[in-house]
Design a protein around this nucleic acid. Structure first.
Length: 561
RNA sequence: CGGGGCGUAGCGUAGCCCGGUUCAUCGCGCCUGCUUUGGGAGCAGGAGGUCGCAGGUUCAAAUCCUGCCGCCCCGACCA
């Protein structure tokens, strides 16, 4: 492509509403433009990258026997009623105003719809059906450019199996395919065991990359590879040790002391001597949750024990305990008490007195706290011990690139997608579901491969293979030589972006090229041409070498390997 | 949905507090001509705006008030 005739509108300045790096660079390099919040147009060079990623995905999906579908984005609402997911998605599902349709946010229902019409025998199984298509979700707050949009491109595949054993095989195939896909895309990723959540089913894994722009928080051990969403992560932390002697309970006047830190300062004690109280409402009843010191309650862990919970409102606190937040404690608390494992059987502890401006010392959890049970409830913190090895955990933000689920029979049961086994007995199809955010792959690649000048594409994802830069198109020798190189490269099978712009200065072209970030730049200028040479710059390393014109094609073909 | 910020030419912005002959600023980009061509060029000339929309206050509104719309950030939410 000749750049003088190609629509690649690069920007010198940073657009005011872009914040994360990948968003800034995608806008500046002319790959995308916004249309509305969370809605982006892909411009020609950006769409080339989308197609390259899609192609890699396609090849790896086909390699495990996947068959590509093209499914409707426009779905009759009643199909989504069959699985009760209109309600489950709630406001996140787009509804049309003038017909009873919804815009598909995923395609389990549609796949199951076709499966129940087509699959009738165990002989029809297994199947892996996939699609790479636009999906719609009414995100309350789109953000970070293409990373969280209302309209996005997703590879979804669905496995149909006759048993859970066979589902495991399909799941394994996807796990391996995903690793190949992300490896080929040049991403540094890690795999996180996740709870299957509202998708239902028996197991799932998330493929993540570390990024400030991420919306998930992950605990990770560099040493052994332990990785878990902070929602479910554990760590090695010391429990509070029991003192040999238990003091008696005593009340202390603590005027205006609200926080654990204030209490420690006031009494000149360590936070490890304090039990922090939080009141949650579960099933309309109050539950007192006790944590050691400043440990925070992990509400996901709490919900695993209690079901849905919410923190109590300030006015409820007073009603339930007789005190405001800051003076609540376990002694004489009338209701269920759940205590973090770190506090197990501890004694000589301080906590609130359920009376404003008073605390209690000398609390012995064995002696003074009735009606309680112990669970792991804490949010782990960076630097704590890895639960699987001797090293310590990092905690950081991450972007979810892909997610694989063992769905089981949730959808086939609900929608009646059944098959007959060898003995003529009817069973629901056992399903799996496997997604990859295509634009996220693109954004994550940029997050991981850029410098202050711009993007550093690898060979597989780059919109073009080579950026051919003719420095001064008004110089006839340069123009003629560059044109020849351009034609030869095309004939040799390269995708070439030829900067033939007549009025752009050298520096302008260099900076545009670094911004767009094609892996190789071939620079044709007066200086080197005098010696019958051109310069080849490697954008990964920013190293330049001079190459004889006569051996240029050979050199580039070799470097393509 | 709560909190915060913003909306002035294609992009980035000044002016807004304190309304009025600086009232629409500046830089980049764009158009024309000449020069320049190895790291975002120089000179000269030029085009481009319902100051987000609607209403209100006022002799007078980009500026003050009300409502709405849009965008961004933090939070909540997130198969």
């Amino acid at each position: 492509m000749k750049q003088s005739k190609t629509f690649i509108p690069t920007l010198k300045e940073v657009p005011s509403d872009a914040v994360v790096t990948s968003h800034v660079l995608m806008l500046r390099s002319g790959m995308i433009r916004p249309l509305g919040a969370g809605i982006y147009s892909f411009l020609p060079s950006g769409y080339r990258v989308v197609r390259k990623i899609s192609q890699i995905i396609r090849e790896e999906m086909d390699a495990i026997g996947g068959q590509e579908f093209h499914l409707p984005a426009l779905n009759p609402r009643e199909i989504w009623e069959e699985t009760n997911r209109v309600e489950a998605f709630g406001d996140n599902l787009f509804h049309l105003k003038n017909r009873d349709y919804v815009l598909a946010p995923t395609h389990e229902e549609i796949i199951t719809f076709h499966a129940r019409k087509v699959v009738s025998s165990y002989k029809d199984l297994p199947q892996i059906w996939y699609q790479i298509q636009t999906k719609f979700r009414n995100e309350p707050r789109p953000r970070s450019g293409v990373i969280r949009g209302r309209q996005f491109l997703m590879k979804d595949s669905y496995s149909l199996d006759s048993s859970y054993e066979n589902l495991n095989l399909s799941y394994e195939l996807h796990d391996k395919a995903y690793r190949k896909i992300f490896d080929r895309c040049g991403l540094k990723y890690f795999v996180v065991g996740a709870s299957s959540g509202a998708m239902g089913g028996t197991g799932s894994e998330e493929f993540m990359i570390k990024s400030e722009a991420g919306e998930d928080t992950v605990a990770y051990c560099e040493a052994c590879g332990y990785a878990a969403n902070v929602e479910v992560a554990n760590s090695r932390v010391n429990p509070k040790e029991r003192d040999s002697e238990s003091k008696l309970v005593y009340e202390i006047s603590t005027p205006n002391v609200k926080s654990i830190d204030e209490l420690c300062t006031f009494l000149n004690i360590d936070e490890s001597q304090c039990a922090k109280s939080r009141i949650y409402i579960s099933d309309n009843k109050p539950v007192l949750v006790l944590m050691l010191g400043n440990d925070e309650v992990n509400e996901t862990k709490l919900e695993k024990i209690l079901g849905n919970v919410r923190p109590a409102h300030p006015d409820e606190l007073k009603e339930i305990t007789g005190a405001d937040a800051g003076s609540i404690g376990p002694v004489a608390f009338n209701g269920k008490i759940i205590v973090d494992l770190r506090l197990k059987n501890s004694n000589n502890m301080f906590s609130g007195a359920n009376k404003n401006d008073y605390h209690i010392g000398g609390i012995d959890f064995q002696r003074d706290v009735v009606n309680h049970e112990y669970h792991d409830l804490r949010i782990i913190k960076a630097g704590e011990g890895c639960p699987k090895c001797e090293k310590n955990l990092e905690v950081f933000s991450a972007i979810e690139l892909g997610h694989i689920f063992k769905l089981g029979t949730k959808y086939s049961d609900a929608m009646g997608a059944l098959f007959l086994d060898e003995s003529g007995k009817e069973h629901p199809i056992v399903m799996g579901s496997y997604g990859i955010g295509v634009e996220r792959v693109m954004a994550c690649f940029i997050e991981q491969h850029h410098d202050e000048k711009g993007i550093k594409w690898n060979k597989l994802l780059a919109p073009f293979d080579i950026h051919l830069i003719a420095l001064n198109m008004k110089n006839e020798l340069i123009a003629k030589t560059a044109e020849e190189i351009y034609n030869n490269l095309k004939q040799s099978g390269f995708e070439v972006l030829f900067d033939d712009r007549i009025d752009a200065g050298a520096g302008f072209k260099f900076n545009d090229a670094d911004l767009i970030g094609l892996p190789l730049q071939v620079i044709v200028g007066e200086k080197k041409l005098k010696e019958n040479k051109v310069e080849v710059k490697n954008r990964q390393t920013n190293e330049r070498v001079d190459v004889e014109l006569s051996s240029l094609i050979e050199y580039l073909v070799r470097s393509k390997e």
